[in-house]
Amino acid sequence: MENVMKNDIRIVEEPRKPLAMHPKKFAMWLFLASVLMLFAAFTSAYIVRQAEGDWVIFDLPDMFTFTTVAILASSIPVQWAYFAARKNQQNLVVALLGIGTVLGILFLAGQWQGWGQLVDNHIHLVGNPSGSFFYLITGLHGLHIISAVIYLIITLVRAHRGIIHSGNLAPLEMCVTYWHFLGGLWLYLFVFLLLNR
């Protein structure tokens, strides 16, 4: 420990410390980059395939408008939870993360309903690739949302136990980043699917 203290109170100029961020937060961003590439691959494949013709056009389920609102709205309590954690308002953090989780589950339920509407409209996974792509892209996004909901619940429990506070924000920050990212990703996918039919 002596060594640590000596290092910290050096007064003489020394070699500059290299640029550094929180390693785990940084790793989270890299993970998001690879998720983004996965969906970029699917949407590019969608465009390439669509350009070849023989493409069945169908309306997006109405439900998706509501789910889009739900997922975008859910970012507000989740971000608010982060601000509350900075002020050590533990109960508020738990409550806000709870709201975020509920909205996330609502989103998933809505997506499921939306799939039901599509099936009623005779668009199935097996059939023209336009439908297959639709189910695959929304389904894969849904899987990510499921993982994020689980992540939110874990973070909620940790906040409840008092592990997350103004001195230890990184676990919450990473969760918040993931949630915002998936919300933004959905907005991109929704607009993409809306415009490229």
């Binding site: 070699p15 410390k17 290299p18 550094a20 961020m21 929180h22 390693p23 940084f26």
Partner: peptide, 9 residues
């Protein structure tokens, strides 16, 4: 990016 020692630019 994050774990380089001092001076390792």
């Amino acid at each position: 990016i994050n774990m380089r020692t001092q001076g390792m630019s």
